[in-house]
């Protein structure tokens, strides 16, 4: 036997009897990553703290999928760095200005400074809201 040759021992057990009738129809199980994450290298997860987006269906303790590859446009729910702090709001147009709106009447509208290029951190693409069995979260604040 040549030294480079490797034998592969297959450790599958051999089934006697009829093969499963479902065998020809096997598919991979649904993987949520494939459906929730279009651009893996640009996608980040963040925890939500606060209640200013409740009318958009985003609640305190939800987990958001944020895709930085998407060019933010009016209507998108975005993560923005406001005064150095990561904040979630809806990007909207007011006349010829861009604003960040809360989705809760108790919160004010925030004007956007158009000159600041780092303002928009990413576009939220989905929110995961646990109904039972939420994983623990240590809640490390971005700006400690």
């Amino acid at each position: 036997m040549s030294p480079g040759l490797k034998l592969i021992l297959v450790d599958e057990t051999v089934q006697a009897g009829f093969p499963s009738p479902a065998g020809d129809y096997l598919e991979g199980r649904i993987d949520l990553n494939e459906h929730l994450i279009q651009h893996p290298s640009a996608t980040f997860l963040v925890w939500v703290s606060g209640d200013s987006m409740v009318d958009a269906g985003i609640f305190d303790g939800d987990l958001l999928v944020v895709d930085r590859s998407i060019q933010a446009a009016p209507g998108h729910i975005v993560v923005a760095a406001i005064d150095g702090e990561l904040t979630l709001k809806r990007l909207a147009r007011r006349g010829n200005r861009m604003v960040l709106q809360a989705e809760n009447d108790a919160y004010p509208v925030i004007e956007v400074d158009e000159n600041s290029e780092t303002l928009i951190w990413g576009v939220a693409t989905s929110a995961i809201h646990w109904l039972a069995g939420q994983p623990p979260r240590t809640g490390t604040m971005a700006a400690e």
Binding site: W47, S52, T138, A142
Partner: peptide
């Protein structure tokens, strides 16, 4: 924190 590799460490965003 390990912002991108550990679910309990991902950043918080305020809203």
């Amino acid at each position: 924190p390990r912002y991108t590799t550990c679910l309990s460490d991902v950043p918080n965003v305020r809203c």
